[in-house]
């Protein structure tokens, strides 16, 4: 129960639900786009050891490297991983929230 003094008093008493699909798209865009831009940024900046640390992602993302081709592969993997994370986040949140408000 919330009382008037509770800062949450004003908020709607409904519990928000997440749209897992939408969350998947958002995370996919952020993660895929983010990895793509991070890779491209390092390539444009150049330097002696380009993307030494970012390259480590190749352990998880097959075919990824800090190169122009790798940036496109990173875009794909990042988007895929983001989509899975977003979708799972929404799914777990909704399941738990649903159980708690039942």
């Amino acid at each position: 129960m919330t009382s008037r003094t509770d800062p949450l008093y004003e908020v709607s008493h409904a519990v928000a639900r997440m749209k897992a699909g939408v969350l998947a798209i958002i995370f996919a865009v952020i993660c895929g786009g983010g990895l793509f831009l991070a890779t491209v940024w390092l390539l444009i900046k150049g330097g002696p050891r380009v993307g030494e640390h970012l390259n480590l992602l190749s352990h998880f993302f097959i075919g990824y490297s800090v190169s122009w081709g790798g940036s496109v592969v990173g875009l794909f993997w990042g988007a895929l991983a983001g989509a899975v994370i977003g979708w799972t986040l929404g799914l777990i949140y909704n399941s738990v929230a649903g159980l708690r408000t039942r």
Binding site: V11, S12, A14, A16, F60, I85, L89, V96
Partner: peptide, 28 residues
């Protein structure tokens, strides 16, 4: 309006983020 101002369930979000970070690190 009700939906837009609905509160997030902290336990549910905690569980979701916790599961993802825990499993994510485990899988990595």
């Amino acid at each position: 309006i009700e939906a837009a101002f609905a509160r997030l369930d902290p336990i549910a979000l905690g569980t979701a983020v916790g599961t993802l970070t825990g499993l994510g690190l485990f899988m990595a």
